[in-house]
Structure formats: structure tokens, C-alpha cells
């Protein structure tokens, strides 16, 4: 009974994984791809881990279940941060939005970020100039 529930959860997770990767192929630009892929693959993998936790707690081995839950928490916390960092990096490195996008409110802020020098970089330049 528990095993059936676990395999249903794993099956739904696998379907989400596959859909996320199809999104990676079909959508037009980096930002849309990151959206589809991050959402679907994060939830899919979390469901896989949840299924493994079910199997573990229903008798196979309790440590496996606990590790699966801890890993699910890690994936859920780190994956959106990674997608955010890559999208910010993509915008600042000059990747344009898809031409049919309707709005772009980030342009002025990106210019502002690129103009201010980083403190570390400025300090390094000072040091090399000094002697």
C-alpha cells in the first residue's frame, strides 16, 4: 500500500522532470527556459525524493528516508537561487529578451549596477597604482 503511493508520487515527479526538459527545448529565450526548467525539474526531483522517503519510512531503511527529506529541503532552497543568479548574470552580460516580450523594467537598474565599480575591484586597482 505505502509502496503503491510512493510509486505514484515518483511517477508524477518523473512526468514533471520530462516536461521541464521539453520546456528547455521549446521555449524561445534564456529567461523563459530558466523559468520552465527550474519550476518543473525542482518540483519533479522533490517528488522523487519524497517518494524515496515514503519507501524508506515504510520499512526499507529509516536513514534513507531522513536523508531524502534533508536533500529535498536543500534542492528546494538552492534551485531557485541558482536560477535567479543565472538570469541576473545573463541580463548583466547583455543577453537580450525575446523580441516579442511586452515589457522590460530592469534596463535602468542594470545600467546602474554596471556603472558602480565593485569595492574589491576598486581597492585592487588602488593597490596596483600605489607603488
Amino acid at each position: 500500500m505505502m509502496l503503491d503511493v510512493a510509486w505514484w508520487i515518483i511517477g508524477v515527479g518523473l512526468a514533471f522532470d520530462l516536461l521541464g526538459c521539453v520546456g528547455l527545448i521549446r521555449l524561445p529565450d534564456v529567461y523563459n527556459r530558466a523559468q520552465a526548467a527550474t519550476k518543473c525539474v525542482t518540483l519533479g526531483t522533490c517528488m522523487l525524493l519524497l517518494g524515496v522517503a515514503f519507501v524508506g519510512f515504510s520499512g526499507t531503511s529509516v536513514p534513507m528516508g531522513i536523508k531524502a527529506l534533508i536533500c529535498a529541503a536543500f534542492v528546494l532552497l538552492t534551485s531557485p537561487v541558482g536560477a535567479h543568479a543565472i538570469c541576473r548574470g545573463a541580463y548583466l552580460s547583455g543577453v537580450k529578451l525575446w523580441p516579442e516580450s511586452v515589457e522590460d523594467a530592469f534596463g535602468p537598474r542594470a545600467d546602474q549596477i554596471q556603472q558602480q565599480p565593485t569595492q574589491k575591484g576598486a581597492a585592487d586597482r588602488e593597490e596596483t597604482k600605489a607603488p
Binding site: L24, V30, A34, A37, T38, G82, A83, I86, A90, S93
Partner: peptide, 9 residues
Amino acid sequence: PDRAVSIDI
């Protein structure tokens, strides 16, 4: 960035 996103996934 496309490649970076794919590597993450």
C-alpha cells in the same frame, strides 16, 4: 547562459 541553465538542470 542557456548552457549554464542546462548544466544546473
